[in-house]
Amino acid sequence: MNQSITRDLTRIASDLAKSVDQLCFAEPVTHVYNPLVYAWKAHQEYLSLANGNLEALFLGMNPGPWGMAQTGVPFGEIAAVRDWMQIECPVDKPPNEHEKRPIEGFACQRSEVSGRRLWGLFSEHYVTPDAFFQSQFVVNYCPLVFMEQSARNRTPDKLPANEREPLTAVCDYHLLAVMQLLKPRFLVAVGVYAEACFKRVVQQGNFDATIVRILHPSPASPAANKDWAGKVTKQLVNAGVWKS
Score class of each variant (00 low, 15 high):
232 V>K: 03
76 G>E: 02
15 D>V: 15
171 C>N: 04
27 E>A: 14
230 G>V: 08
84 W>S: 09
126 Y>Q: 12
126 Y>V: 12
169 A>Y: 00
229 A>P: 15
158 K>H: 14
97 E>F: 15
68 M>V: 14
241 V>G: 04
126 Y>C: 15
91 V>G: 05
110 R>I: 02
82 R>Q: 10
24 C>F: 10
59 L>F: 03
178 V>S: 02
175 L>C: 07
192 V>E: 15
167 L>P: 10
190 V>M: 13
152 R>V: 10
150 S>E: 13
181 L>G: 03
111 S>T: 07
192 V>M: 07
209 A>T: 12
157 D>N: 14
111 S>Q: 00
24 C>T: 14
29 V>Y: 05
207 F>G: 02
147 M>Y: 11
17 A>C: 08
87 I>P: 09
2 N>M: 13
127 V>I: 15
130 D>I: 05
51 N>C: 13
160 P>F: 04
128 T>H: 08
137 F>Y: 02
47 L>I: 05
46 Y>N: 01
135 S>I: 08
123 S>N: 08
197 C>W: 04
4 S>Y: 02
72 G>L: 11
242 W>I: 13
91 V>N: 06
239 A>W: 03
51 N>T: 12
148 E>D: 07
174 H>V: 10
224 A>R: 01
235 Q>L: 09
212 V>K: 06
157 D>A: 13
158 K>A: 08
150 S>Y: 06
233 T>G: 12
43 H>R: 06
159 L>W: 04
227 D>Y: 11
39 A>G: 11
155 T>D: 09
183 K>I: 07
154 R>D: 04
46 Y>R: 01
178 V>D: 01
9 L>A: 00
190 V>G: 09
226 K>C: 05
184 P>W: 01
175 L>E: 02
189 A>N: 03
192 V>W: 01
150 S>Q: 11
178 V>K: 01
52 G>Y: 00
114 S>K: 05
234 K>W: 00
37 V>L: 13
184 P>S: 02
54 L>I: 06
200 R>L: 11
181 L>S: 00
191 G>C: 13
54 L>R: 00
205 G>H: 04
59 L>D: 01
219 P>N: 00
99 E>L: 10
102 P>Q: 10
22 Q>V: 03
124 E>A: 12
11 R>N: 08
21 D>P: 00
35 P>K: 04
219 P>K: 00
189 A>K: 02
15 D>N: 04
150 S>H: 07
235 Q>D: 09
94 P>T: 10
38 Y>S: 09
229 A>S: 15
114 S>E: 05
214 I>P: 13
144 L>D: 03
17 A>D: 12
128 T>D: 13
128 T>E: 12
96 N>S: 13
33 Y>Q: 06
29 V>K: 01
231 K>C: 15
99 E>H: 14
3 Q>V: 10
122 F>T: 08
62 N>H: 09
